[in-house]
Amino acid sequence: MNDAIVLKYQISPDDFTRAGEASSDVKGKLKQLGISPEAVRKVAIAMYEGEINMVIHANGGEIVVEITPAEIKMVLADVGPGIPDVEKAMKAGYSTAPDEVRNLGFGAGMGLPNMKKYTDDMKIETTIGVGTTITMLVKL
């Protein structure tokens, strides 16, 4: 496919103040491309939650965003601790985030549920001690 646009971001693990920069950049680029505001909003929220998770739980990682005329695919890959119980983690309100993360306004247990809510498809591949890869699709 020669009409796919691919954006790659390295997510820094220890800088909470910069968390969200990649999502904000993607939002700007999607707007420039003339993608509908509704789709831009979905991608921005889902990716931002994912990006925050990577900073909080997984020592950073890499996000690849692929834009085609039909869909926007986001692949968030980290080499963090993995998610022990995905079913539990998907429950609204369930959180393992420490208090200092909550003091920053996150860790309400809404991250993964939000990502699912705002995307058309979400797949989680996770292995304890190896890492997690989350693939999300927003259809255009």
């Binding site: 929220i45 931002y48 939650e49 609204a92 909550r102 306004g105 996150f106 860790g107 309400a108 247990g109 809404m110 991250g111 549920p113 939000n114 809510k117």
Partner: peptide
């Protein structure tokens, strides 16, 4: 809200 996750949700 003081919780950004809730605002996003």
């Amino acid at each position: 809200s003081d919780m950004m996750s809730d605002v996003l949700a």
